[in-house]
Design a protein around this nucleic acid. Structure first.
Lengths: 190, 190
DNA sequence: CGTTTCATGTAAGTCGTTACATGATTCC
DNA sequence: GGAATCATGTAACGACTTACATGAAACG
């Protein structure tokens, strides 16, 4: 008896609802904070999944509150569906990194323009890393009270951003400068 | 005038077609090798984008060859569209890492099960890293003939996979064993 | 001759993004 | 009163996946 087929995004919402009833708005904010690092979701998706799950009986909408806030609570069926979901082998990673496409086809771009793109993206990643480091410092200050699971996902963000910055810094200047000559080259294939 | 709106996947196909006419099949294989590392695409997408771009005049289908192979060649309009695409600021990175969702909600899983997931995924990443290292060794053996742009994207793959493995190895055994105080299980060990 | 691999394509459905519409509440 | 923010939702589209259908050629 397969229940309602949960996708990872919907399942995450159920995961959060274990902590208590929440509105779509709250869920968007919480997901951003807790899993936004490695899982993106939009407002639209959240409301859509909540509506679908309400239809399937996995969550229940409560009374509308102050600002039309409508809290959703997880049901017993929702807990079951979540438990079944999380017991499955997680799928494999998906990365889509448009900047790398630009680099891969970099011979078609003026070197200074590629250099500019690289510099701008590097700055974004540096800032993101700084944010993660602040979070880590806060967690350290809080002592043992931090959730080890949250720390583990934060550690991933740190490792990833450090790797990305290291990659930026290890890039040969070549890519942003030498390619002036390479632009004539028909491209070398191995 | 705005040309045909290119998405990154279609643009990549045009990028490859700069190297000469190719069939959908060839493009799938080539993309897998050259950008599969940070950009996924499926056969279906490739044929669809080729058909759409042919309709828009960005590529031209040639005569069907031996095995019904139909080569596509980039047109002048295609080169223009590609040039316009690559000149744009690349969008930001998207990562979707289901295993991290499992970790984030790890308190809802038996520790040994989480440990098993972690171990299996670690093995996949270790193998992928080994593959990248082989490619790097080959490139080094080939000397200066390697494309610096291809080397740069390979360097990203290496950096990323090393970071991921480092993350696995830095995870406290706690995550896989905490709840069961008796740690027969080495948890996540490489 | 039969199996595998090559090769092209369609169909159906899910997922995700963007943009918009609506209105309540707070804050100045 | 007016602007900003909170909050919910819809509409429309575009992107991606999975599964399937079809057949040619190579290989044994």
């Amino acid at each position: 008896m397969v229940g309602f087929p949960l996708n990872a995004t919907a399942a995450s919402l159920l995961g959060f609802l274990h902590e208590g009833p929440m509105t779509g708005w709250d869920l968007v904010a919480l997901a951003q904070r807790r899993i936004g690092n490695f899982w993106s979701l939009t407002q639209s998706q959240v409301y859509r999944e909540l509506a679908a799950m309400a239809g399937a009986g996995l969550v229940e909408a409560g009374e509308r509150g102050r600002r039309d806030r409508r809290p959703y609570a997880i049901t017993a069926a929702g807990r079951d569906a979540f438990a079944a979901w999380i017991d499955q082998e997680p799928g494999s990673e998906t990365i889509r990194f448009p900047l790398l496409l630009t680099v891969a086809f970099g011979r078609h771009l003026p070197p200074d323009r590629l250099a500019m793109f690289l510099a701008r993206h590097r700055a974004v990643h540096a800032e993101r890393l700084a944010g993660y480091e602040r979070l880590q410092a806060e967690a350290a200050a809080a002592g043992n009270h931090a959730d080890p699971f949250a720390l583990a996902t934060l550690a991933f963000g740190l490792a990833h951003e450090r790797a990305v910055l290291g990659w930026f810094d290890g890039l040969p200047v070549v890519l942003g400068a030498e390619a002036t000559q390479a632009a004539d080259d028909p491209g070398v294939e191995g």
